[in-house]
Protein backbone atom coordinates (compact mmCIF):
# COMPACT_ATOMS: atom_id res chain seq x y z
CA UNK A 1 0.00 0.00 0.00
CA UNK A 2 2.75 2.36 1.00
CA UNK A 3 4.69 1.37 -2.09
CA UNK A 4 1.68 2.13 -4.23
CA UNK A 5 1.25 5.54 -2.65
CA UNK A 6 4.89 6.35 -3.25
CA UNK A 7 4.54 5.27 -6.86
CA UNK A 8 1.51 7.53 -7.19
CA UNK A 9 3.56 10.46 -5.97
CA UNK A 10 6.12 10.12 -8.77
CA UNK A 11 5.10 12.51 -11.55
CA UNK A 12 5.45 9.88 -14.27
CA UNK A 13 3.36 7.29 -12.41
CA UNK A 14 0.15 8.47 -13.98
CA UNK A 15 1.44 7.27 -17.35
CA UNK A 16 3.63 4.37 -16.34
CA UNK A 17 0.84 2.35 -14.77
CA UNK A 18 -1.53 2.49 -17.78
CA UNK A 19 1.43 1.78 -20.05
CA UNK A 20 2.06 -1.46 -18.15
CA UNK A 21 -1.62 -2.33 -18.18
CA UNK A 22 -2.03 -1.77 -21.92
CA UNK A 23 1.11 -3.75 -22.68
CA UNK A 24 -0.07 -6.69 -20.58
CA UNK A 25 -3.56 -6.64 -22.05
CA UNK A 26 -2.31 -6.68 -25.63
CA UNK A 27 0.25 -9.33 -24.75
CA UNK A 28 -2.50 -11.55 -23.34
CA UNK A 29 -4.65 -11.03 -26.41
CA UNK A 30 -1.83 -11.83 -28.79
CA UNK A 31 1.52 -13.21 -27.59
CA UNK A 32 3.29 -12.07 -30.75
CA UNK A 33 2.83 -8.49 -29.53
CA UNK A 34 6.04 -8.63 -27.51
CA UNK A 35 8.17 -10.57 -29.97
CA UNK A 36 11.47 -8.81 -30.77
CA UNK A 37 10.36 -7.98 -34.30
CA UNK A 38 7.17 -6.43 -33.14
CA UNK A 39 8.88 -4.42 -30.40
CA UNK A 40 11.52 -3.21 -32.84
CA UNK A 41 8.82 -2.14 -35.25
CA UNK A 42 7.05 -0.18 -32.51
CA UNK A 43 10.24 1.57 -31.45
CA UNK A 44 11.09 2.44 -35.05
CA UNK A 45 7.65 3.85 -35.63
CA UNK A 46 7.82 6.33 -32.79
CA UNK A 47 11.24 7.66 -33.79
CA UNK A 48 10.40 10.73 -35.83
CA UNK A 49 7.56 12.08 -33.78
CA UNK A 50 9.72 11.21 -30.76
CA UNK A 51 12.68 13.36 -31.81
CA UNK A 52 10.44 16.39 -32.26
CA UNK A 53 8.63 15.63 -29.00
CA UNK A 54 11.92 16.11 -27.13
CA UNK A 55 12.15 19.68 -28.43
CA UNK A 56 8.45 20.31 -27.93
CA UNK A 57 8.79 19.17 -24.30
CA UNK A 58 11.38 21.87 -23.68
CA UNK A 59 9.30 24.45 -25.48
CA UNK A 60 6.06 23.67 -23.69
CA UNK A 61 7.78 23.64 -20.31
CA UNK A 62 9.12 27.10 -21.17
CA UNK A 63 5.54 28.18 -21.74
CA UNK A 64 5.37 28.01 -25.53
CA UNK A 65 3.92 25.65 -28.10
CA UNK A 66 4.83 24.95 -31.73
CA UNK A 67 2.19 23.69 -34.16
CA UNK A 68 4.46 24.07 -37.19
CA UNK A 69 6.80 21.16 -36.44
CA UNK A 70 5.38 18.78 -39.07
CA UNK A 71 5.52 21.35 -41.85
CA UNK A 72 8.99 22.47 -40.83
CA UNK A 73 10.17 18.83 -40.87
CA UNK A 74 8.79 18.48 -44.40
CA UNK A 75 10.32 21.77 -45.57
CA UNK A 76 13.75 20.86 -44.21
CA UNK A 77 13.65 17.46 -45.91
CA UNK A 78 12.69 19.04 -49.22
CA UNK A 79 15.24 21.87 -48.98
CA UNK A 80 18.10 19.50 -48.24
CA UNK A 81 17.13 16.94 -50.89
CA UNK A 82 16.57 19.72 -53.44
CA UNK A 83 20.01 21.21 -52.71
CA UNK A 84 21.67 17.80 -52.97
CA UNK A 85 19.81 16.48 -56.00
CA UNK A 86 18.93 19.50 -58.11
CA UNK A 87 21.74 21.88 -57.07
CA UNK A 88 24.39 19.17 -56.70
CA UNK A 89 25.57 20.23 -53.26
CA UNK A 90 27.57 17.73 -51.16
CA UNK A 91 25.65 15.68 -48.59
CA UNK A 92 27.08 17.55 -45.59
CA UNK A 93 26.13 20.94 -47.02
CA UNK A 94 22.64 19.72 -47.83
CA UNK A 95 22.07 18.40 -44.31
CA UNK A 96 23.50 21.53 -42.70
CA UNK A 97 21.26 23.69 -44.86
CA UNK A 98 18.24 21.61 -43.81
CA UNK A 99 19.20 22.03 -40.17
CA UNK A 100 19.66 25.76 -40.69
CA UNK A 101 16.16 26.01 -42.15
CA UNK A 102 14.83 24.30 -38.98
CA UNK A 103 16.68 26.75 -36.74
CA UNK A 104 15.49 29.68 -38.81
CA UNK A 105 11.85 28.57 -38.67
CA UNK A 106 12.19 28.27 -34.89
CA UNK A 107 13.84 31.67 -34.68
CA UNK A 108 11.07 33.29 -36.68
CA UNK A 109 8.40 31.57 -34.57
CA UNK A 110 10.16 32.67 -31.39
CA UNK A 111 10.64 36.27 -32.47
CA UNK A 112 7.04 36.63 -33.57
CA UNK A 113 5.73 35.17 -30.32
CA UNK A 114 8.13 36.78 -27.86
CA UNK A 115 8.93 40.11 -29.47
CA UNK A 116 5.60 40.90 -31.09
CA UNK A 117 3.42 39.20 -28.55
CA UNK A 118 1.36 37.23 -31.04
CA UNK A 119 -0.06 34.14 -29.31
CA UNK A 120 2.09 31.07 -29.95
CA UNK A 121 -0.91 29.11 -31.16
CA UNK A 122 -1.58 31.61 -33.95
CA UNK A 123 2.02 32.40 -34.86
CA UNK A 124 3.04 28.78 -35.26
CA UNK A 125 -0.21 27.86 -37.00
CA UNK A 126 0.80 30.51 -39.52
CA UNK A 127 4.23 28.92 -39.84
CA UNK A 128 2.52 25.55 -40.41
CA UNK A 129 0.93 26.93 -43.58
CA UNK A 130 3.92 28.99 -44.69
CA UNK A 131 6.40 26.11 -44.39
CA UNK A 132 4.12 23.64 -46.17
CA UNK A 133 3.50 26.16 -48.94
CA UNK A 134 7.20 26.88 -49.44
CA UNK A 135 7.78 23.13 -49.53
CA UNK A 136 5.37 22.64 -52.45
CA UNK A 137 6.69 25.74 -54.23
CA UNK A 138 10.21 24.35 -54.09
CA UNK A 139 9.45 20.82 -55.32
CA UNK A 140 6.38 21.67 -57.42
CA UNK A 141 4.61 18.93 -55.49
CA UNK A 142 6.81 16.14 -56.87
CA UNK A 143 9.00 13.89 -54.73
CA UNK A 144 12.74 14.50 -55.13
CA UNK A 145 14.73 11.30 -55.69
CA UNK A 146 17.04 9.55 -55.65
CA UNK A 147 18.96 11.06 -52.76
CA UNK A 148 22.75 10.55 -52.51
CA UNK A 149 24.01 7.05 -51.69
CA UNK A 150 25.59 7.77 -48.26
CA UNK A 151 22.22 8.97 -47.04
CA UNK A 152 20.42 6.03 -48.59
CA UNK A 153 22.79 3.63 -46.83
CA UNK A 154 22.31 5.45 -43.55
CA UNK A 155 18.57 5.09 -43.88
CA UNK A 156 18.80 1.39 -44.71
CA UNK A 157 21.21 0.36 -41.95
CA UNK A 158 19.72 -1.62 -39.10
CA UNK A 159 21.92 -1.30 -36.00
CA UNK A 160 20.54 -3.68 -33.31
CA UNK A 161 17.61 -4.43 -35.57
CA UNK A 162 16.50 -0.83 -35.25
CA UNK A 163 17.62 2.22 -37.23
CA UNK A 164 20.14 5.03 -36.95
CA UNK A 165 17.19 7.36 -36.62
CA UNK A 166 16.11 5.49 -33.52
CA UNK A 167 19.63 5.65 -32.12
CA UNK A 168 19.59 9.40 -32.75
CA UNK A 169 16.24 9.64 -30.97
CA UNK A 170 17.52 7.80 -27.90
CA UNK A 171 20.65 9.97 -27.78
CA UNK A 172 18.75 13.22 -28.22
CA UNK A 173 16.16 12.18 -25.64
CA UNK A 174 18.92 11.25 -23.17
CA UNK A 175 20.77 14.52 -23.64
CA UNK A 176 17.52 16.46 -23.63
CA UNK A 177 16.43 14.86 -20.38
CA UNK A 178 19.73 15.44 -18.61
CA UNK A 179 20.10 19.02 -19.81
CA UNK A 180 16.58 19.91 -18.81
CA UNK A 181 16.81 18.52 -15.30
CA UNK A 182 20.41 19.15 -14.44
CA UNK A 183 21.77 22.19 -16.23
CA UNK A 184 21.45 25.88 -15.46
CA UNK A 185 19.74 26.42 -18.80
CA UNK A 186 17.22 23.70 -18.07
CA UNK A 187 16.37 25.28 -14.74
CA UNK A 188 15.86 28.61 -16.50
CA UNK A 189 13.44 26.89 -18.88
CA UNK A 190 11.38 25.61 -15.95
CA UNK A 191 11.47 28.99 -14.23
CA UNK A 192 10.41 30.87 -17.35
CA UNK A 193 7.47 28.56 -17.93
CA UNK A 194 6.59 28.46 -14.24
CA UNK A 195 6.26 32.24 -13.88
CA UNK A 196 7.79 34.65 -16.40
CA UNK A 197 7.88 37.57 -13.95
CA UNK A 198 9.60 35.55 -11.23
CA UNK A 199 12.16 34.41 -13.79
CA UNK A 200 12.71 37.96 -15.04
CA UNK A 201 13.22 39.29 -11.52
CA UNK A 202 15.77 36.53 -11.03
CA UNK A 203 17.70 38.10 -13.90
CA UNK A 204 16.88 35.40 -16.43
CA UNK A 205 16.66 36.56 -20.04
CA UNK A 206 13.27 34.97 -20.52
CA UNK A 207 12.91 36.18 -24.11
CA UNK A 208 15.98 34.28 -25.20
CA UNK A 209 15.09 31.23 -23.14
CA UNK A 210 11.81 31.01 -25.00
CA UNK A 211 13.25 31.86 -28.40
CA UNK A 212 15.98 29.30 -27.76
CA UNK A 213 13.36 26.64 -27.13
CA UNK A 214 11.56 27.52 -30.37
CA UNK A 215 14.87 27.18 -32.21
CA UNK A 216 15.57 23.87 -30.54
CA UNK A 217 12.16 22.58 -31.56
CA UNK A 218 12.68 23.77 -35.14
CA UNK A 219 16.07 22.04 -35.27
CA UNK A 220 14.59 18.81 -33.91
CA UNK A 221 11.91 18.98 -36.60
CA UNK A 222 14.66 19.36 -39.21
CA UNK A 223 16.55 16.34 -37.85
CA UNK A 224 13.41 14.21 -37.84
CA UNK A 225 12.40 15.27 -41.35
CA UNK A 226 15.81 14.57 -42.85
CA UNK A 227 16.15 11.22 -41.07
CA UNK A 228 12.82 10.10 -42.47
CA UNK A 229 13.94 11.31 -45.89
CA UNK A 230 17.04 9.13 -45.64
CA UNK A 231 14.92 6.16 -44.63
CA UNK A 232 12.36 6.68 -47.42
CA UNK A 233 15.17 7.39 -49.87
CA UNK A 234 12.99 10.21 -51.20
CA UNK A 235 12.53 13.92 -50.55
CA UNK A 236 8.82 13.38 -50.05
CA UNK A 237 6.79 16.62 -49.88
CA UNK A 238 4.25 14.98 -47.57
CA UNK A 239 6.83 14.30 -44.86
CA UNK A 240 5.52 15.54 -41.53
CA UNK A 241 1.87 15.99 -42.41
CA UNK A 242 -0.12 15.72 -39.20
CA UNK A 243 2.93 15.17 -36.97
CA UNK A 244 2.25 18.23 -34.86
CA UNK A 245 -0.81 16.62 -33.34
CA UNK A 246 0.98 13.37 -32.48
CA UNK A 247 3.85 15.36 -31.00
CA UNK A 248 1.64 17.50 -28.82
CA UNK A 249 -0.52 14.53 -27.81
CA UNK A 250 2.46 12.53 -26.61
CA UNK A 251 4.00 15.48 -24.78
CA UNK A 252 0.72 16.19 -23.03
CA UNK A 253 0.10 12.51 -22.22
CA UNK A 254 3.62 12.57 -20.77
CA UNK A 255 2.55 15.09 -18.17
CA UNK A 256 3.77 18.42 -19.57
CA UNK A 257 1.44 21.22 -18.57
CA UNK A 258 0.02 23.43 -21.28
CA UNK A 259 0.65 26.33 -18.93
CA UNK A 260 4.35 25.57 -18.72
CA UNK A 261 6.74 24.92 -15.88
CA UNK A 262 5.90 21.25 -15.43
CA UNK A 263 7.03 18.02 -17.10
CA UNK A 264 10.04 15.91 -18.02
CA UNK A 265 11.50 14.29 -21.13
CA UNK A 266 11.12 10.89 -19.45
CA UNK A 267 7.42 11.60 -19.15
CA UNK A 268 7.24 12.44 -22.83
CA UNK A 269 9.07 9.22 -23.66
CA UNK A 270 6.46 7.25 -21.72
CA UNK A 271 3.75 9.23 -23.48
CA UNK A 272 5.20 8.25 -26.85
CA UNK A 273 5.38 4.61 -25.77
CA UNK A 274 1.79 4.54 -24.62
CA UNK A 275 0.55 5.96 -27.93
CA UNK A 276 2.61 3.45 -29.87
CA UNK A 277 1.60 0.49 -27.72
CA UNK A 278 -2.06 1.26 -28.19
CA UNK A 279 -1.71 1.77 -31.94
CA UNK A 280 0.34 -1.37 -32.54
CA UNK A 281 -1.74 -3.31 -30.04
CA UNK A 282 -4.93 -2.56 -31.87
CA UNK A 283 -3.27 -3.67 -35.09
CA UNK A 284 -2.11 -7.04 -33.74
CA UNK A 285 -5.50 -7.71 -32.21
CA UNK A 286 -7.05 -7.11 -35.60
CA UNK A 287 -9.23 -4.14 -34.76
CA UNK A 288 -10.22 -1.78 -37.56
CA UNK A 289 -7.26 0.59 -37.87
CA UNK A 290 -9.41 3.67 -37.59
CA UNK A 291 -10.05 2.79 -33.97
CA UNK A 292 -6.41 3.77 -33.37
CA UNK A 293 -7.23 7.39 -33.93
CA UNK A 294 -10.21 7.17 -31.61
CA UNK A 295 -8.03 5.50 -28.98
CA UNK A 296 -5.34 8.20 -29.14
CA UNK A 297 -7.92 10.90 -28.56
CA UNK A 298 -9.46 9.09 -25.61
CA UNK A 299 -6.08 8.35 -24.08
CA UNK A 300 -4.87 11.92 -24.32
CA UNK A 301 -7.85 13.36 -22.52
CA UNK A 302 -7.81 10.55 -19.95
CA UNK A 303 -4.10 11.04 -19.31
CA UNK A 304 -4.54 14.72 -18.62
CA UNK A 305 -7.48 13.88 -16.35
CA UNK A 306 -5.46 11.34 -14.37
CA UNK A 307 -2.62 13.82 -14.08
CA UNK A 308 -4.92 16.49 -12.70
CA UNK A 309 -6.35 13.99 -10.23
CA UNK A 310 -2.86 13.04 -9.08
CA UNK A 311 -1.87 16.65 -8.54
CA UNK A 312 -5.01 17.26 -6.55
CA UNK A 313 -4.46 14.31 -4.24
CA UNK A 314 -0.93 15.49 -3.66
CA UNK A 315 -1.80 19.02 -2.68
CA UNK A 316 -4.85 18.51 -0.53
Amino acid sequence: MKFLRKLWAIPEAGIFVPLLVFTLVFFCLNQSFLEPNSVAAMLRAMTFVGIIAVGQTWLMIAGGIDLSVGSVAGLCAIVSSWLMKTQGLPVEAGLLAGLAVGFMAGLVNGLIVVRFGIPAFIATLGMLYVARGLNYLLCQGYPIYPIPDPLKDLGRAEPLGLSWAFVAFVLLAGIGDFALRRTVYGRMVYATGGNVEVARIAGINTAWVQIGCYMLTGAMAAVAGMLLMSQLNVGQPEIGVGWELDVIASVVIGGVSLFGGVGTVVGTFLGLLIMQVVRSGLVVTGVNTHWQTVAVGVIMVTAVGVDLLRRRTKIS
Binding site: G194, N195, V198, G261
Partner: peptide, 8 residues
Amino acid sequence: LDGLLFNF
Protein backbone atom coordinates in the same frame (compact mmCIF):
# COMPACT_ATOMS: atom_id res chain seq x y z
CA LEU B 1 1.87 37.05 -8.18
CA ASP B 2 5.61 37.32 -8.74
CA GLY B 3 7.41 36.14 -5.63
CA LEU B 4 7.73 32.40 -5.93
CA LEU B 5 7.67 29.51 -8.37
CA PHE B 6 4.79 27.58 -6.88
CA ASN B 7 5.48 24.45 -8.95
CA PHE B 8 8.77 24.08 -7.19
